[in-house]
Nucleic acid binder design. Sequence first.
DNA 1: TTTAAAAAGTTGCAAATGCAACAATGACTT
DNA 2: AAGTCATTGTTGCATTTGCAACTTTTTAAA
Lengths: 209, 209
Amino acid sequence: MKHLFSKISVKEKEKLLRLLETNTLSFPKNTTILSSTKDNVIGIILEGHAQITRTDYNGNRTIIEELNEESIFGTVISSLKSNEYEVMTKEKTKVLIIDYHSIINYENTNHKYYNRFIKNLLEITTDIIEEKNERIEILTKKTIRDKLLEYFNTYCKKHGTRIIYLPFSYTDLADYIAADRSAMSRELGYLKDEGFIKTKGRRISILYM
Amino acid sequence: MKHLFSKISVKEKEKLLRLLETNTLSFPKNTTILSSTKDNVIGIILEGHAQITRTDYNGNRTIIEELNEESIFGTVISSLKSNEYEVMTKEKTKVLIIDYHSIINYENTNHKYYNRFIKNLLEITTDIIEEKNERIEILTKKTIRDKLLEYFNTYCKKHGTRIIYLPFSYTDLADYIAADRSAMSRELGYLKDEGFIKTKGRRISILYM
DNA sequence: TTTAAAAAGTTGCAAATGCAACAATGACTT
DNA sequence: AAGTCATTGTTGCATTTGCAACTTTTTAAA
């Protein structure tokens, strides 16, 4: 992921943060940083570790995203508007919060670093769109098998490989493709039986084609 | 949708387009403008009318998006990278194509209108992310009923109303929520029977709570 | 090393859905 | 007004999937 402050010096960064509506906040472990804000904000993890989680009406909590140092999150980026989502610290965490409107409404176009910042943000948002498109492509497939194959294809194309190292657990994969975990497990079993894939832990080898 | 050239004068716009790698192209009716480009480009319809379509392996073509004057499309925005997609003119159409990398790599930060352009583009991309998030929210629901209800809720919240005027056909809605059209039709029937909604053509009234 | 807690695999079964085929309605054209 | 084409509604049936409940395996913690 591109960085919000790339090509901006530490001094310029400090100036920039003074121009915008920002807050540097520290949170203890297991605290909610953000939940369903109407305000559009962008947050950056300065130190520590947090997670975006979702709690559905059954009370099941799933982890949507891991946030480590330099990770970016926010209402502009994720769908934090729904009250099912929250950003929660997993350890003592320092966060920089920037009001999105103060970014957009700031009008002095002479500040080089401000313009660079906007451009960095643009690059990040286009990357995010690409990720979302990939996921939508998967989610619109009608069977679990097709969802899995689409996931495998996208992964392999991107990494130029036939061996997949899942970046998360199978439980998370089931969430990602919006399928029941046990049903997905069953489907993976079929794919193995039919000789399309081979797995060892979170390593999946693609054998077809 | 925000406009790519808002707050940029006609003269500035012309200067800008000379700075960037752009092409103004005219296409006759029923011609393919773009299909699965490796290049990242942004296109703007200057005159005419086109459609983003998708043709699946069965040969079924669906319309993904209507493009009218000032509409923006492109590999950065839609998932045009898959060869299932293409942008096709429905009448004689004039298009402005801008190379995405020439936008990002241009480094002279003194041009006010260039910076404004980047900012406009940023606003557009964040809007797009929001749209994609909404769709993902729908697509991750496990039943057609839940998908429909999520669609209704999002629509109503956004428009502040209990009456929905579908912006497209039921056939398209089925595509949007990734469900079989007849199965969706059946589910809408149940929702009517149970008194949750009432429909008249493409107007849907929400009766529950 | 033991213990606890996640994660992953398995399976029967009921429910939801896709598919196919066709009827009905509505919109548009000549 | 007739005819064509797209959209919408309907229904039987086979398939897929979610769900629940339980086992096995893996990982992390004490």
